[in-house]
Design a binder for these strands. Structure first.
Lengths: 202, 202
DNA sequence: ATTAAAAATGAACAATGTTCATTTTTTTTA
DNA sequence: TAAAAAAAATGAACATTGTTCATTTTTAAT
């Protein structure tokens, strides 16, 4: 019988509908200003229904953060065209920073907000898959660089974390308005350019 | 007459009392879990009184964040003993990271949370003095390094921002639990060690 | 057409930041 | 010293939030 299958499909559709409604509001008003009631209104369902499909607000924020990682992964696809590992690494940083600049709220949700991590820790797997895959991608790039002679004597794990920290630090400080005290017109762009200049020695 | 003076003193004393109560709760339960009612209870005054002394919660959080910067500045004092500019810079990073590790909530309030910045922007001066002074301190260190031949050809402003971003990025990722996907026992310590190894080339 | 299961509902709850008319305390004045 | 004025403290009340759950509505099975 195809009934249960159709039901499953409908269930998934509403799940997506709610999530997309949340996504839209979230882009409009910022994550901090979106309430469960807002989301319910937007999709024309009751508050209770939202809670049928999502355990709590953390679950919604985690699902949203996952969508963010999907888009970031898409953006990273252009890197496959970059043959030279070092150039690929440099380009990856640019893509990362650009994403953070264009979608600051989403970036904040992905890399700063506690909610998605709380959801992960409440769950079964207990592991942050999105972060794991993304960091793994960076680690591979670093190893590719080392394979052609760069970063000699450096530990790839620590170096990956260091480089992640550099771009994250700049994006994070920018988003939280801490760069107001830095006398640069475009802090992240100019800061990253400075980093690229450093990389020339490796 | 000494009445108004005594009044002013009493006013400041209660202001401090409230703030220290907030500070204590804040250290106990974390910034996210402290309410105005908690603070009022802790100092044995009413909720309304707290609002007589502080415009809103942002004002309290800003005052707390300022206390954090005072402590960070104190910790930086040991750097005055380090003659060599490059060694001073390296030591400064260590102090910064250590502070973030020992007081993650305070660090988060100082460098991530929106509230203190909102307070600054609502105010007159409109400038984040704490950040300005701290960043200025870093800039001076970089310039001292350049004066003895380091970082040749690098822009001090951009370089300062880059280095700030490095240590902030590591601390920030650590505090927001994003380092769970990094295979390092002590991400910040090992990541910073990797950075120090990089600095050898400059 | 009845019954059972599933899905959707929205009123209700506790907790939060915030306000403000009222009360209490202190200071000044007569 | 007693009354009036000013300052300080109060806490009840409001709007919003995330969340729950008994009830109603819709759908499926008999």
């Amino acid at each position: 019988m195809g009934v249960s299958e159709r039901k499953a499909r409908e269930k998934e559709e509403l799940w997506n509908l709610i999530l997309e409604g949340a996504m839209k509001l979230f882009a409009e008003k910022g994550v901090a200003n979106v309430t469960i009631r807002n989301i319910a209104d937007a999709v024309e369902y009751s508050v209770g229904t939202v809670y049928v499909y999502f355990k709590d607000k953390n679950a919604i924020l985690h699902a949203l953060h996952t969508k963010g990682f999907l888009e970031l992964r898409d953006r990273f696809l252009v890197l496959l065209n970059v043959e030279n590992p070092m150039e690929r690494l440099k380009a990856a940083g640019k893509v990362y920073i650009q994403f953070a600049q264009e979608q600051p709220d989403m970036y904040d949700l992905m890399f700063n907000t506690q909610a998605p991590m709380d959801f992960v820790k409440e769950g079964d797997g207990d592991v942050w898959n999105e972060g794991k895959a993304t960091f793994g991608f960076l680690r591979t790039m670093i190893q590719d660089c080392q394979a052609v002679g760069h970063f000699e004597g450096h530990d790839p794990e620590a170096l990956s974390f260091l480089i992640w920290s550099i771009v994250h630090g700049m994006c994070s400080l920018r988003i939280s308005c801490r760069t107001d005290v830095v006398n640069l017109a475009q802090p992240t762009t100019q800061g990253y350019a400075e980093f690229l200049r450093m990389l020339d020695k490796f």
